[in-house]
């Protein structure tokens, strides 16, 4: 009998805190703080976002075109911010597959290298024009050379099983990631529908109760319809209802977790109260809805500004 050994990369105790901030030109800054619990048995060496929407926007990438001038591959090394020079960002979009991640920079397979147990690091991030949704980050511990030993012939049944184990050799954590596309030119109805599509996945991921998600869906749909039929005030009313629904369980949702000075992040804010929506999901939805309101307000102000200029120019004539 032959035995195989895999040193699993799941002996970390990771937490990852997501922040979103709207900066100029409607760009959203995504930043992350990574921590490894003090009881962890391994340092963290990788944080990966796999399976993002193929067309998710990440700014400042490097695009390589093919011989026919079509996009061959898009690299994200230059897009990804890192906390220090011990880490580097990496990722690519090729044929509609998108992976980004951060890796501890190592010249060897030394298993001691990475974010040590008890340590925390902020400064991972990137910019995007897409709105945040909730996605899963894969946190990988450092085990040196991480493949199964011994190895088996490709495509054998054993190899398939071992590959399956290797591919799932990580600790998952929810993060805010660019999941909801923003149309250009800005169309609030389309954006609301995109938000609605993403929120509909939450019950399956245990991010929201089904009944609560159904109520969210009704109001999201109503808001989208209102925008579609040029009733922005009505749409605003539905969005306010949605914001109230969120605040029922999460009163201080509009404050960043490290600003409320309670020393806890999303996953740590547990209480005995039954929650209808996950805190990160609530924060993400809160951000998205306020983005739409803010943008509609800006659009309205711009339109008003244009109208008054036109009026003045006519008067002058």
């Amino acid at each position: 009998m032959i035995t195989a050994q895999l040193k699993t990369a799941t002996k970390t105790e990771p937490t990852i805190l997501s922040k979103n901030k709207l900066i100029e030109n409607w760009i959203i800054r995504y930043t992350y703080t990574l921590s490894n619990g003090s009881k962890a048995k391994q340092p963290i060496e990788d944080v990966m976002f796999r399976g993002l929407p193929p067309k998710a926007n990440i700014l400042n990438s490097l695009v390589i075109t093919g011989s026919d001038n079509s996009n061959l591959i898009e690299f994200f090394e230059s897009s990804l911010a890192v906390p220090n020079n011990q880490w580097y960002g990496s990722g690519a979009r090729h044929q509609e597959e998108l992976i980004i991640g951060w890796h501890y920079s190592a010249d060897s397979f030394d298993p001691q290298l990475g974010l040590q147990p008890g340590a925390s690091l902020k400064g991972f991030g990137f910019n995007s024009i897409d709105l945040p949704g909730v996605w899963i980050a894969q946190i990988v511990g450092n085990v040196g050379y991480h493949h199964f030993q011994p190895l088996y012939e490709n495509d054998s049944d054993v190899d398939e099983l071992m590959s399956e184990i290797e591919y799932n050799d990580f600790v998952p954590r929810n993060v805010a990631a660019p999941m909801i596309s923003v149309s250009a030119p800005f169309d609030p109805a389309i954006v609301m529908e995109n938000i609605r599509t993403h929120v509909a996945t939450w019950p399956g991921k245990q991010l929201a109760e089904a009944a609560f998600a159904a109520q969210l869906d009704l109001n999201l749909q109503a808001a989208a319809n209102a925008y579609r039929t040029n009733q922005p005030e009505a749409a605003k009313g539905y969005i306010e209802i949605l914001l109230d629904m969120i605040r029922r369980d999460h009163k201080d949702i509009d404050r960043e977790d490290d600003e409320d000075n309670d020393g806890k992040n999303d996953s740590q804010k547990t209480n005995t109260q039954h929650l209808t929506i996950d805190r990160l999901a609530a924060r993400v939805l809160d951000f998205d809805l306020k983005y739409v309101l803010k943008r509609m307000r800006h659009e309205g102000e711009e339109n008003d500004g244009k109208k008054s200029k036109d009026k003045e120019s006519r008067k002058e004539r």
Partner: peptide
């Protein structure tokens, strides 16, 4: 050899695709 680790990470990012990590072996 100093790039082995980074090379493997790059394979995971670029070659792995929807299945996750690429299949490679030294």
């Amino acid at each position: 050899a100093r790039n082995f680790k980074a090379f493997e990470k790059m394979l995971d990012d670029v070659v792995g695709g929807k299945t996750g990590r690429a299949k490679y072996l030294l």
